[in-house]
Design a protein around this nucleic acid. Structure first.
Length: 500
RNA sequence: GCUCCCAUAGUGUAGUGGCCAAUCAUGUGGGCCUCUCGAGCCCACGACUCGGGUUCAAAUCCCGAUGGGAGCACCA
């Protein structure tokens, strides 16, 4: 029986089986192994600047899991490299997290934990799992690349403890001494052989000043903190795969139970400047107006444009925690955002590239345009136009190509036929006109206010917005036939473009 | 150079050996619609990287190739 025949037979016997069942699948994150009794998770940014879209995956996904399983969510600011710290970032980051809807239970600065790090450094030294090295950094690295130990590696713990003491009290200068964690010099992966755990920094720290000179390095402080803070799961990007390998040596040296490590894929975000260092420099040069310049991918910029945090959350949940490398898709993010804001955004007319046109044959026309096409309860924008002839402004491109006699419906206003591209004859207000093929265009009356739309590429589109739009300052609205924007107060109407 | 990770439509995703003639979303094209180049509804387009192997049966397991990505800092 071929496919057609089978189908025909089925149709005869059990037609209901042929109906395609539409399964609305709600996309969910996969379960986490060993999470049944709650989790402790963390998000650990360096306070080098405010958060950007790239940070939100880790921040949101960890949050999602803590919300799902219950437990504790710790924000740990990894401020162990004074030169790169931006003091205001501490506040900017928690503000960004709040905006994102992250429910964290604790905020910890690593800079407040130096004594703890020293304590564990000493333990590692005592156990023979670390050594204090005074080789020139380059020499030490070269030896490591050749799988060779430096002369200090095999010395007795007592000697190291003694040097460590001297390192702490200030007998050395930065670059002269460091504390190194032993891993496996024979390891085929050069990225996991012995790594430096603590070093000297002379630059004052914005929070602790010059109280400490011995600074922990990333892999060391992370391993200590993750254990002490009792992390059950560490969910982070794949770029940390080799760091995990290194950190696991510390767990093994100390005899600690490891958390569950999960690494999601690398995300490439095109066409968006995300480098904190570069952004900071450009702000100082005046190239960007600030951290919330709409050309940027910072949380502050996205919020300003009318991107909702729920959209970002939905996007990352959809993407999930697979270890595939992905391309970030603005388009998909915008689609989620549109789903959220379209049902609530008020509609207004914005006329770019405006052109004055006249309507002859009627001296008073009233317009009631709904603020939202499906939500009549939001009310209308009422405009009364009068004059002889009546004068309005429309988008030039809408009328320029018009040949005489073309039917045009001015949306929510009236019908007309064109006499010339700028002169129209009133043709009643019966909506069947649209059915007959009239083109619908939007317009603004004489009371329109100047408006500027700031596009994400930095371009500014000047035009006129209907007066009622001033009632929605600081809201996300839709400029019909243009796109969604967020309104800001200015001398005129300042709008920041979100997406179509 | 060494090491590691990954591979389903343009993008993201479901899929854990038979129910895959492959899911959903997004996108693109078209249609419906008394008012958006919007929304909604409907239709269409579009993918298992390649080559071997295991098996009655492979998107799914194994090997190899190719391609993409990351790490090899006294940054985080």
């Amino acid at each position: 029986m071929n496919l057609e025949a089978q189908r025909a037979e089925l149709e005869r016997l059990a037609p209901e089986l042929l109906e395609k069942k539409k399964i609305e699948k709600i996309h969910e994150l996969p379960e986490l192994e060993g999470a049944e009794n709650g989790v402790v998770m963390r998000f650990a940014p360096g306070p080098t600047g405010p958060l950007h879209i790239g940070h939100t995956r880790a921040a949101i996904l960890n949050d999602e899991y803590v919300k799902r399983y219950g437990g504790k969510y710790i924000i740990r600011l990894e401020d162990t490299n004074p030169p790169t710290i931006l003091p205001e970032a501490y506040d900017l980051i928690t503000k960004d997290l709040d905006w994102l809807g992250i429910e964290y239970h604790e905020v910890v600065n690593q800079s407040s934990r130096f004594k703890i790090y020293y304590e564990y450094a000493e333990k590692l030294l005592q156990g023979g799992f670390a050594y204090v090295c005074t080789c020139p950094p380059d020499d030490w690295r070269t030896l490591k690349e050749d799988k060779k130990p430096c002369p200090h590696r095999s010395l007795e713990p007592n000697i190291h403890l003694d040097l460590w003491e001297k390192m702490l009290v200030g007998e050395f200068k930065p670059g002269e001494i460091s504390l190194v964690v032993k891993t496996d010099l024979e390891h085929p992966n050069p990225a996991v052989r012995d790594f430096v755990a603590l070093r000297l920094v002379d630059e004052p720290h914005p929070l602790t000043g010059d109280e400490f000179r011995v600074y922990p390095l990333y892999n060391f402080s992370v391993a200590i903190d993750d254990h002490l803070m009792e992390m059950s799961h560490v969910l982070r990007g794949k770029d940390h795969l080799n760091n995990t390998l290194r950190q696991e040596y510390i767990y093994e040296h100390m005899g600690w139970k490891k958390p569950v490590f999960i690494h999601y894929g690398w995300v490439s975000i095109e066409d968006t400047e995300l480098s904190t260092r570069k952004i900071k420099a450009s702000i100082e040069e005046g190239k960007y107006t600030g951290w919330n310049d709409v050309r940027l991918g910072t949380i502050a910029a996205l919020a300003r444009r009318g991107i909702r945090s729920e959209a970002i959350r939905q996007y990352w949940i959809e993407v999930g925690i697979k270890s595939v490398d992905i391309k970030f898709s603005w388009q998909n993010l915008y689609a989620y955002n549109k789903g959220i804001i379209d049902p609530v955004a008020k509609r207004y007319f914005f006329v770019w590239n405006p052109k004055k046109v006249t309507i002859k044959g009627e001296n008073i026309i009233k317009s009631h345009a709904p603020l939202h096409p499906e939500k009549s309860e939001l009310g209308n924008r009422e405009v009364i136009l009068s004059g002889d002839p009546i004068e309005i402004q429309v988008v030039s491109e809408d009328v320029e190509p018009l040949s005489p006699g073309t039917r045009i419906r001015f949306k929510d206003l009236c019908n007309s036929t064109s006499e010339t591209p700028v002169v129209f004859n009133y043709a009643g207000n019966d909506l069947s006109f649209v059915k007959e093929g009239a083109k619908i265009i939007h317009w603004v009356g004489p009371d329109a206010v100047p408006a500027k739309v700031h596009m994400p590429d930095g371009k500014i589109i000047d035009g006129l917005a209907e007066k009622a739009a001033s009632d929605s300052i600081s809201e996300i609205v839709q400029f019909e036939r243009f796109g969604f924007v967020k309104l800001e107060k200015g001398n005129e109407i300042e709008a920041y473009f979100a997406h179509k």
